[in-house]
């Protein structure tokens, strides 16, 4: 389910092997994260004592399992490196990164500025749709604008008027 969308479902090729290049790096990151968490679990356990019925045992077990599995993954990744073809992985980091930045900005604007839900959402829709689009601006700008206005206003009205959930009104006189 997580595997990449192949261009054509019929061509889902068996060569799309899981152990893509970069997997060893992922394994190292996982192992380091697991080790850090295990360290925290163990020190908490030492400070507070570990008993079978206490709260410190499960963290040690789970993070211990994490380290063990991460080690297994790393070994597998290193071993299969030579035979692994490039999976249908990411083709660009740029778009998701920009999209993430847009998302974070959107959340911050919602919470900390007076722009309000409708304006912030409308702007976000325009930006995100542009980032996700492969067609030139002038072909889609009308469509994007219409969606931005309809979506943001629609959500705002339904939530505040019908459900009683407060969304920041902001500068618009709503």
């Amino acid at each position: 389910m997580t595997s990449a969308l192949p261009p054509d479902p019929e061509q889902a090729t068996p060569e799309a092997a899981p152990s893509a290049s970069g997997a060893p790096v992922a394994g190292v990151v996982l192992l380091l994260a697991g080790a850090a968490l295990l360290w925290q679990a163990v020190t908490t356990g030492i400070d507070n004592g570990v008993t079978l019925g206490g709260p410190t045992l499960a963290p040690i077990v789970v993070t211990g399992l994490w380290v063990a599995v991460a080690l297994g993954y790393l070994l597998e990744a290193v071993r299969k490196r030579a035979v692994a073809g490039e999976a249908a992985g990411l083709t660009t980091w740029r778009t998701p990164l920009l999209l993430l930045v847009a998302l974070v900005c959107y959340a911050v604007v919602l919470k900390y500025t007076v722009l309000g839900y409708v304006l912030a959402t409308a702007v976000f829709v325009l930006v995100a749709a542009r980032l996700l689009s492969t067609r030139p601006v002038r072909e889609v700008i009308v469509r994007d604008l219409a969606t931005a206005v309809a979506l943001s206003l629609g959500i705002y009205l339904v939530f505040t008027r019908l459900l009683g959930i407060v969304l920041p009104a902001g500068v618009l006189p709503l």
């Binding site: 999209l99 993430l100 959340a107 919602l110 900390y112 980032l131 969606t147 959930i165 969304l167």
Partner: peptide, 30 residues
């Protein structure tokens, strides 16, 4: 697709933010 996935992001953010009122929860989701 651009509009569909933008819509998903808007609803996802809304779902977390409107329920918890907490921007930290939104960042956890991100």
């Amino acid at each position: 697709r651009p509009l569909l996935y933008t819509g998903i992001l808007v609803f996802a953010t809304l779902g977390v933010y409107a329920v918890s009122g907490s921007i930290v929860d939104v960042f956890i989701a991100f």
